[in-house]
Design a protein around this nucleic acid. Structure first.
Lengths: 229, 229
DNA sequence: ACAAATTTAGACACTCTTGTCCAAATCGTC
DNA sequence: GACGATTTGGACAAGAGTGTCTAAATTTGT
């Protein structure tokens, strides 16, 4: 029983490997074509299996779709929590550390394949499967946003930030950091690395102008001194 | 034929009314079901016309779709520019005025029927019709964002704000003001009025903490007066 | 009220897709 | 090398949807 951890051998081996390659291909096709437009034959071709195998594994187009969303949600959540674990709790350089965190969050959770696909599926089919996406909402934003908020609360408690409501601050942090990527996200595109960095940098700077403690205090002092107000 | 000089489309007015009701119904169905899932019979039923009439008017499912997107883009753009015209150039109460602007923008351009539909269609079918949505990108964000940026630049020039890059500030303003509505937007929902107000209020407050001049000056004045400094 | 334009309902051919069935080929394991 | 499980490809029925065509009904302008 050799546990072949080999990540992606092109011709998949074994029952479970086939299941994965099916779900993987299905994710891509569902995203590109939408649920109604997705073609089982095309999924089979892209997965490198026969159509019958798909029915053997998942029984049904709808069940396949549910499996895809569950899979993506799970993997994305894992990625997000792994990234949250790298949040700078005791930053040396607050600005640089927050920018790094924002970039990691974007690259590992939002712009990567899983994140892109999950986002698209939520947008396109969310209304058709209320329970499924209610589940996502609980497992996704319902758990990750508070987790991020908690990290900001800790930063505030440590005297690094002047925040009243950590939940609001967390949401605004995400909004700011992605502010320049909205159009790209809308069209389903993937921003370039430098665009991500740019947006994160601008976003974090504004965030710190609003909530930074030492920096704003210093600049206020400086401005008052200069302006003589 | 004698009316052919009229700038309007040549067919009679009952004709035009039907065209509108078709495009309207089609917008709804395309949004709910996606392009592939949209059913011409269903569109006909919701428009209150026969299927043949749709083919008489638009010839083709794809042409109908294009007409829908063009229609929505045009109406949304008109709404956005009408709202931009209400931007507070010489604000009495900067915070309240910006909140009002943000709420108007949301209610009249983003959360209304046209805005919701256009957003959804862009998200779901944007990749399938690159030229069509490139056109939208130019006509939409390509023209509205700079327009908003120009207004912020004017505020900055007037001494109301401390902004370095008006374009960045405009995008961040939109990001902040919608920060709390992201999940709802993703699932295609419509936020309640109080949610819009809440998000706008929080967003504008943070925006002014980062870029506000007047307010901090005013509060400093007030504080100085009170403290006798 | 008349004539032209438009709309309607229904039938129709055609294509595409889903999901099932089955015998043969292949794979994994002992 | 052999055996059981899995996969394969192809055929198939059933259903749904697009787009066309027609003759009859309705609306519109004069």
């Amino acid at each position: 029983m050799r546990l072949s951890v080999s990540p992606d051998t092109f011709p998949p081996r074994g029952h479970e490997a086939k299941r994965l390659s099916i779900v993987d291909a299905a994710a891509g096709v569902f995203c590109r074509e939408g649920f109604a437009g997705a073609n089982i034959d095309l999924i089979a071709a892209e997965a490198g299996v026969s159509r019958q195998t798909i029915y053997n594994h998942h029984g049904d187009k709808e069940k396949l779709f549910v499996a895809v969303v569950r899979d993506l949600t799970e993997r994305c959540n894992a990625g997000i929590f792994a990234t949250i674990a790298t949040f700078p709790d005791q930053p040396k350089d607050l600005e640089a550390d927050l920018i790094g965190f924002a970039v990691r969050l974007n690259q590992n959770c939002i712009c990567n394949r899983d994140g892109k696909f999950l986002r698209k599926l939520i947008q396109t089919e969310g209304e058709r499967y209320p329970e499924l996406f209610a589940e996502w909402r609980e497992q996704g934003p319902g758990r990750t946003w508070p987790a991020i908020a908690a990290r900001f609360a800790r930063l505030a408690y440590g005297g690094y930030l002047a925040i009243e409501d950590p939940d609001v601050a967390a949401r605004q942090f995400l909004g700011l950091v992605n502010a320049e990527l909205q159009t790209t996200f809308m069209l389903g595109g993937t921003p370039r690395e430098d665009e991500v960095l740019q947006s994160a940098t601008n976003g974090v700077r504004t965030f710190l102008r609003a909530f930074g403690k030492r920096r704003s205090a210093a600049s206020v002092e400086k401005q008052s001194a200069l302006a003589g107000v």
